[in-house]
Design a protein around this nucleic acid. Structure first.
Length: 513
RNA sequence: GGCCCAUUCGUCUAUCGGUUAGGACGCAAGAUUUUCAUUCUUGAAAGAGCAGUUCGAUUCUGCUAUGGGCUACCA
């Protein structure tokens, strides 16, 4: 591979359902790599399995990438010089290449039916062996290697179903290089003759389509999940068979995302069981009506989601943990991707979201919080909404946490928390609160600082306990033993509202004995 | 079963032969605070096992164990 070759990477999902977060991470790493090298990010849809195609999945994939901020330069949805980018729309391309391999002796026709293959597998299983379609059997079965040429011709002309299989060489060492795993070698005798093309639906399988398209689309780096590592030797041999070794892309196989409990790939069921989303966006299956929650709908910020995902299997080698997309682009490298699978950590995802929450400006918070306020019938300016959110953001993980945290700014308490009431609505406290009312009523400049100064001086002068006074006031204004500093509340709701809330508690709440 | 990949605190990870094995999440304790939180400080917590190479191995090699992936006319 030439150093000068322009970087072109592709994300090539199969539209068989919603894109799960492992797929999002693969897309992200491709994107970061492309951007860092001034390269091109391609989106190719690999819909060569007509059986598993799910309507809506492709749109879901594109919307997910968009939400994540992963931009596509070329491919489905945006077009480009190698269009079309949906493999089902490229079907006429593949047969030619499959036939080229047959002609060159790298592939052959096989006429076995599904039932026949099933029987062979069962037979082998009965003997305690695994059936492999390979050098040992291909010349004994109904293949163009065993049958006379006229017979092969006749079967094809007659319309018999056939497939084209790769003729895996016997006992050859394939040496491969992976950007993450290093040198890998495997003996071809342990491999089988994979189907490359299926006549039944006139479509290639993944292996053929993948190599042909990567070649045609001038892909320079294939960055994909580790589940593809076992088929890498086949892919190497395919490049060799086509004579495309010189332009063969470099490969990088990413470690898998594992269940939080360990023991396998992360799956949809884990999310349901352990209460965290496995998909970026909410998904509803058009076929079954089944739904799955998404990070977006669960209140995650896309930046936090991406930050969390980026650090799962990659790290910069420094102690930095918070990264903007641009920072990720600048510091990402395949060499620093780890080799072993990473368990997904729901708790850490929340922590990342909280970090981003804490760094949001009041204006940003206002935009996100306003819809929730309106749901609760609160109509306030962006400035007011942002201020309330800003005061309490440090305690929130999600935007949706803000209502519980700030509702008292907008709505006077109608109930008083029992514990706080028992503790503070007793003895002299109601009487002292009446005095506090008088002090507050006399203040003209109701700013946080001024109110604090005057009230504190008064408390000191009277010799009252700070905790007693402030908590009683808190009970009156908030109705509970929580909230920000008291003067944040007084300044926010203003003098009149303060007095109103004090009057109400004095009127409504009988003192505790 | 076969093939391939992996293995450092509970989890995510740093270390590119010589370190008191570092950070983060979570957990615990303490401090701060008018409340609830936040925040801060501190603490517990790791090289799977056995050989070998080496003056010296977490780091290199082999074996074992464990985990994972693949083994479809699915991707």
């Amino acid at each position: 591979m030439s150093m000068k070759r322009p970087v072109r990477v592709r994300f090539a999902p199969s539209p068989t359902g919603p894109l799960h977060i492992g797929g999002v991470r693969t897309a992200l790493y491709n994107y970061l790599f492309a951007r860092q090298h001034g390269g091109t990010m391609i989106l190719r849809i690999e819909d060569t399995d007509s059986q598993r195609f799910v309507p809506g999945a492709e749109e879901y994939i594109m919307e997910s990438l968009k939400w994540c901020g992963i931009e596509i330069d070329e491919g489905v949805g945006v077009g480009g010089p190698h269009a079309p980018y949906r493999q089902s729309e490229r079907r006429e391309i593949y047969l030619k290449y499959a036939l080229q391999l047959v002609e060159a002796g790298w592939a052959y026709y096989a006429f076995d039916s599904a039932e026949e293959l099933d029987a062979l597998r069962k037979e082998a299983e009965a003997r305690g062996e695994a059936f492999a379609y390979n050098y040992a059997v291909r010349e004994k079965l109904a293949t163009s290697l065993a049958l006379p040429a006229e017979e092969v011709r006749a079967r094809i002309d007659r319309g018999d179903q056939w497939v084209i299989r790769f003729k895996m060489p016997e006992n050859q060492l394939v040496e491969m290089d992976d950007l993450i795993r290093g040198h890998v070698e495997v003996n071809t005798s342990t491999l089988d003759d994979k189907v490359l093309y299926k006549s039944a639906d006139a479509l290639p399988t993944y292996h053929l389509a993948n190599i042909v398209d990567d070649h045609l689309m001038e892909v320079s780096h294939v960055i994909r999940g580790e589940e593809w590592l076992p088929s890498l030797p086949l892919h190497y041999l395919l490049y060799k068979a086509f004579g495309w070794e010189d332009s063969q892309p470099a490969f990088a196989h990413l470690p898998l995302l594992l269940k939080p409990t360990g023991g396998g790939k992360l799956s949809k069921r884990d999310g349901d069981k352990m209460g965290f989303p496995v998909f970026p966006l909410f998904w509803k299956s058009p076929a079954t009506g089944e739904t799955a929650r998404g990070y977006r709908e669960d209140g995650y910020f896309p930046e936090a989601f991406i930050n969390m995902l980026a650090l799962l299997g990659w790290n910069p080698g420094t102690e930095q943990e918070i990264f903007s997309m641009q920072e990720l682009i600048d510091s990402f490298s395949l060499e620093r991707v780890s080799k072993s699978g990473a368990r997904f950590q729901p708790d850490k995802a929340k922590w990342f979201n909280a970090q981003y929450m804490h760094h949001k400006t009041d204006a940003e918070l206002a935009a996100l919080y306003q819809p929730i306020l309106r749901e609760h019938g609160i109509e306030v300016s962006d400035e007011v909404a942002g201020k309330a959110a800003g005061i309490m953001k440090e305690r929130a993980t999600f935007i949706t946490d803000l209502w519980d945290l700030t509702s008292f700014f907008f709505v006077a308490p109608t109930q008083y928390e029992e514990k706080q009431t028992r503790k503070y609505w007793k003895g002299d406290n109601p009487r002292i609160l009446r005095e506090v009312r008088g002090v507050l009523a006399a203040i003209d400049d109701f700013s946080l600082e001024n109110t604090e100064r005057i009230v504190h001086a008064w408390i000191e002068e009277k010799g009252y306990g700070m905790g007693q006074v402030m908590n009683t006031l808190r009970l009156a204004l908030v109705g509970a033993g929580k909230g920000p500093g008291m003067y944040d509340v007084t300044a926010f709701i203003g003098k009149e509202e303060c007095l109103r809330r004090i009057d109400r508690i004095l009127e409504v709440l009988p003192p505790v004995e």
